[in-house]
Every structure is written in structure tokens, then in C-alpha cells.
């Protein structure tokens, strides 16, 4: 087999592309540009950490099913972990968004990183919403009967029925978290591949 034949294989080409775009020293760096020195940089990793706690506490809730937390003190505590990690998640994500906006972090070919971040934010809101309507308590009764009007008015209600508990639970624990994990993964890989956005160049500006 000739080496050109091997080079032309899909697998080889994908490997070369990945190795070129994301060499190990970019994937797991041991240095960072000197300008990366501000507390504002911790909110990305804080969001990721909160997401991990959200997913882990969600796993524990999944072990025992959607009604468990109403009847068990431990279940209720795990629900509390789930709620508060979600609050921290959004708290950190919004500050991360503000910070990245004021750094204009889309510069230098990083616009897709911004776009995936915003999509992740929107998917997270949808994930949280489906969680609220899957609580099987007064909250979910009220929120679903209210939200149906908004969603129905767009036409989406014809296939996304917020009053269908089974459907909402599936979206909440399968489809939307999967989307959030994939999007977050892409977002982080893009940050690693492109590096952290450099400061505005101010040399030519009169100061």
C-alpha cells in the first residue's frame, strides 16, 4: 500500500487535521499568554464546574426516578443540590458572557466560539425550563399551564407539548443535556484551539 493511499484515507486526514488544529500542548496547555491575569477569567471554568455538579446531581435524581425527591429527605437534598448548582451555573455563565463581551472575545477568528456560547446559553434556558415543568409539584403545574400559551402561540406547541410530563422529562434528562454537553464541548475545544483572545492593540491610538 502506498503512503499516498494511506494519506488519502478519511481516518488519516481527520487525524492530521485534529493533530494540526489541537496539538496536545494546546489541548492541555502549561502556559497562558501573560495578559490572561484577571478574576474575570475564572467564570468560564466556574460555569463548567457548576454544569458538572448539575449533571452529577441530576444523575443521582435519575437513579431513583422523578417522584423520589418528594418522599425522601435525601432525595430532597439532592434536589436542592440540583437547584443551587443550576443557580450557580447561570450566575457564572452570565458573568462569563458579560466578561467575554467587554473583551470582544470574538476577535481574531473566534466568532464561532461566541456563537456556540450563545447557543449553549439558550439551550441551557430550555433545559432549565423543562426541568421546572418536570418537578411534579405545584410549580410544574403552574409553569407548564402558563408556558403552554407562549409556546403554542409560536406553533411549536403542536409538537412540543409542555403539558406532557413524559415528553418534557425526556427532553430534560436526555435530549437537551446531550445538546448542552456537545455544545459546551465544542465551545471549549474552540477556545483551546484558538487560544484566549489577545487585548486590543492600542499602539496606534493617541493616548
Amino acid at each position: 500500500m502506498s503512503s499516498t493511499e494511506i494519506d488519502r484515507q478519511w481516518t488519516t486526514r481527520l487525524r492530521h487535521r485534529v493533530a494540526h488544529r489541537l496539538p496536545p500542548e494546546k489541548m492541555l496547555p502549561d502556559t497562558q499568554p501573560a495578559y490572561v491575569a484577571s478574576w474575570i477569567y475564572v467564570f468560564g471554568v466556574t460555569t463548567l464546574s457548576a454544569f458538572a455538579v448539575v449533571v452529577l446531581s441530576g444523575f443521582i435524581l435519575a437513579l431513583k426516578g422523578p417522584q423520589w425527591w418528594h418522599v425522601s429527605g435525601i432525595g430532597h437534598f439532592v434536589n436542592s443540590l440540583h437547584l443551587w448548582s443550576v443557580e450557580i451555573f447561570f450566575f457564572a455563565m452570565v458573568i462569563h458572557l458579560w466578561g467575554k463581551y467587554f473583551m470582544a472575545a470574538w476577535r481574531g477568528g473566534r466568532s464561532l466560539t461566541w456563537v456556540t456560547g450563545v447557543v449553549t446559553f439558550l439551550v441551557s434556558i430550555a433545559t432549565a425550563f423543562t426541568g421546572y415543568v418536570s418537578q411534579t409539584n405545584f410549580d410544574s403545574q403552574w409553569i407548564s399551564t402558563q408556558a403552554k400559551d407562549g409556546i403554542n402561540s409560536t406553533g411549536a406547541g403542536s409538537f412540543f407539548n409542555v403539558l406532557n410530563f413524559g415528553q418534557m422529562l425526556m427532553w430534560h434528562i436526555v435530549l437537551l443535556p446531550l445538546a448542552a454537553v456537545v455544545l459546551t464541548g465544542l465551545h471549549v475545544l474552540m477556545v483551546r484551539a484558538k487560544g484566549v483572545v489577545p487585548p486590543f492593540e492600542e499602539k496606534e491610538e493617541a493616548r
Binding site: 491575569a37 484577571s38 478574576w39 474575570i40 467564570f43 450566575f91 458573568i95 458579560w98 466578561g99
Partner: peptide, 18 residues
């Protein structure tokens, strides 16, 4: 409280020395 804390945290992140 949550929103105020977010603003305070954001401003602190800008000003507090790293």
C-alpha cells in the same frame, strides 16, 4: 439579591487584583 450579587461579582472581578 441574585442579580445584585451578579453585578457586584462582575465589578469585583474587574477591580480585584489577580
Amino acid at each position: 439579591t441574585v442579580i445584585a450579587l451578579m453585578v457586584v461579582t462582575f465589578v469585583a472581578a474587574l477591580f480585584v487584583p489577580f
